[in-house]
Design a protein around this nucleic acid. Structure first.
Lengths: 210, 210
DNA sequence: TAAAAATACCCCTAATTAGGTTATTTGTAT
DNA sequence: ATACAAATAACCTAATTAGGGGTATTTTTA
């Protein structure tokens, strides 16, 4: 395969040893080449239009701009780049923040060279490389509590509240009277031990009721 | 490995040919055994406490109760069972509905025997087997629009509105006056071309602004 | 056939919401 | 250094909503 057809990879990692090791691994593949490897986000972001990366391997803990903000900047300034987070942590908050910021993959630094190259290939063919645990975290995040204290109708109404609907709109949408909506909402408040829409939604989110 | 230590698998699939084929594949592994294979959800759900499945392979298109409702019932009645959806469709709405219903894996019927067994092993070690495309769909679902028309402050306020906060609460939380909150919200409405909290949130959700 | 769920109405008061308009201060690019 | 964008703040008005308290009937479902 000609060098011109290798996928362009940029690495952002402050640990020089890891940075060099990743560079060697990526360059060992005929399908990928490291265009540049930086010790911080600032430099990587400044060089985006020059480097034109197709894939960015991004550390999370970095001096200055961290990897999550860095991922956000990269997707903003150079959207076609696919960002893979590479980190020692599998902390769920960090994972979700990184994904919201635009990362499309999330692997750990303990990854050996096969795992790293597999992740690059996976993202190249439109996938989303993740460790088993990350995949599970992500999927679990979708799961709705099957033991909700709310009835079907109450859940339906809570859903509409979460869309910002008023009593009147809920009534119209469900073809029930405004008073009935109010009764359901009162029952929801009582079951969730709250007394406002705001609190009900916060509780619903915590308990994954909708 | 003794038969008693094989993972208990239940199959729900209306096509007899596919059902038999899956049964053969699963039973060919020393790690798994098919306890029962059903043509519809009703029977599978009725037999849960007898079958005690650790893994359920669930078709989506089924006569009677469909696979998504089936997955919900199974997680409700027998939560320790891990449900893997097996389907020909990779339609995003179906995928997300299935995941909300409690599925922890999502593979296609075109899967060969290696892919099927890999999925079973993956879920056995706490992962979430998915095809590349599904993984990507799921991850893309987290991505926030990096080209939001809203300013940082406006986005922050929209976020608080989504939590059901009132003008007053927003003001208190951001240490700004109530009037300032109102001004920001008016600007948000103008940019999103809406004129109520409800519509703003609907638009924000569509456009992944928060 | 009970119990749970969904439906509906009454009364009450305070607070929120949305629209319109103007203006100052603080940041940030060019 | 100077524009321009962003964030801040205020005043006015009127309609709607929200939340609390009670009671009661019809469907569903276990």
């Amino acid at each position: 395969m000609a060098i011109a057809f290798k996928k362009r990879v940029v690495i952002v990692e402050d640990d020089e040893e890891i940075r060099n090791s990743f560079t060697l691994i990526v360059n060992s593949s005929p399908k990928f080449m490291v265009i540049n490897a930086y010790g911080n986000c600032e430099k990587a972001i400044a060089a985006l239009n020059h480097d034109k990366p197709e894939i960015v391997l991004m550390d999370i803990e970095l001096p200055g701009i961290n990897g999550i903000k860095g991922a956000r900047s990269i997707k903003e300034k150079y959207p076609s780049a696919e960002v893979i987070m590479v980190t020692v942590y599998e902390d769920s908050d960090l994972v979700f923040e990184a994904l919201k910021a635009g990362a499309s993959g999330y692997i750990t630094k303990s990854s050996n060279y096969i795992e790293l190259l597999t992740a690059l290939e996976e993202i190249s063919r439109g996938g989303a490389p993740m460790s088993s645990r990350i995949a599970r975290m992500v999927i679990d995040n979708f799961h709705v509590n099957p033991n909700s204290p709310l009835t079907r109708r109450e859940t339906e109404i809570l859903q509409l509240i979460s869309e910002g609907k008023t009593y009147t709109q809920i009534s119209e949408e469900l073809f029930i009277s405004k008073e009935t909506s109010k009764t359901h909402i009162k029952n929801i408040y009582s079951k969730l031990q709250v007394n406002s829409k705001a609190e009900a939604l916060a509780k619903a989110s915590q308990e994954k009721l909708i």
